Simulated scan of single mutants.
Amino acid sequence: MKTYNIFISHAWKYTEHYNKVVQWLNEAQSEGKFNWKNYSVPEHDPLIDPNTSSGKTKLKNALDAQIKPASIVIILAGMYAAHSDWIDFEIDTAVSYEKYIIGVKPWGQERIPTKVSNNADIMVGWNKSSVVDAVAAR
């Protein structure tokens, strides 16, 4: 069975969206569709303050270290408006390492941020089968 190293874009404010994607991937693994390793760390590190220049540098270094070994990067497009600087950095980092990017459209939202749609290898809907199928097709 194939194993995927996956980084899931996340923001601490949107933990429930991140957790839902993790749940879907865990269910797919339990169903024998594939194995996966989570290269994202959603919990906030209180030692890193992203509002300071040293904190931004630490967070960028941490994100780079998480994205580099991943084979797939999943971008949750619904968080984009509130966190575009960080998601831009995640997308740019994924592109620089030539990672396969899966963009996930927010539930019920028609408009997708251009940065996400222009860089995603595939855009999928906000549902388990779309996300799991996009991973398994890689």
Rank of each mutant, 00 (worst) to 15 (best):
Y39I: 06
N127T: 05
G103H: 09
G103A: 08
W12M: 03
S54G: 09
R111C: 06
M123C: 03
T3V: 07
M123E: 13
I67Q: 03
V132D: 05
S84P: 01
K99Q: 12
K60E: 14
K60T: 12
F89E: 15
N35L: 09
H17G: 10
K99D: 11
Q109S: 09
L76F: 12
R111Y: 07
G55V: 01
R138P: 06
A134L: 08
K20Y: 05
Y97E: 05
V116F: 03
S71T: 14
I91T: 06
L76D: 13
L76H: 05
W36S: 12
D92K: 14
I67R: 09
S130T: 04
A82H: 07
F34T: 00
G108E: 01
W12A: 05
P46I: 06
A28Y: 00
V131A: 11
Y18A: 01
N127Q: 13
E43L: 13
I6A: 01
D64L: 08
N19L: 08
V73F: 05
S129G: 07
N127M: 03
S71K: 02
P42L: 13
I6E: 10
T15M: 09
K58A: 08
V131P: 10
F7H: 04
I91H: 00
E110S: 14
S130N: 12
A136K: 10
N35K: 10
Q29R: 11
V124D: 02
M1I: 14
A137D: 07
S54Q: 14
Y97K: 07
V104N: 05
M1K: 13
W24D: 01
M79A: 07
K58R: 15
Q23E: 15
Y18W: 14
K56C: 04
S130K: 13
N38R: 14
Y100W: 04
A136M: 09
K99M: 10
M123Q: 04
P69C: 02
D49V: 05
K33D: 12
K33A: 03
S9V: 02
I67V: 13
L25C: 02
V135D: 00
I75W: 06
K20S: 10
Y4I: 12
P113L: 03
V41F: 08
A136H: 01
S130M: 04
V21N: 08
A94Y: 00
A81Q: 15
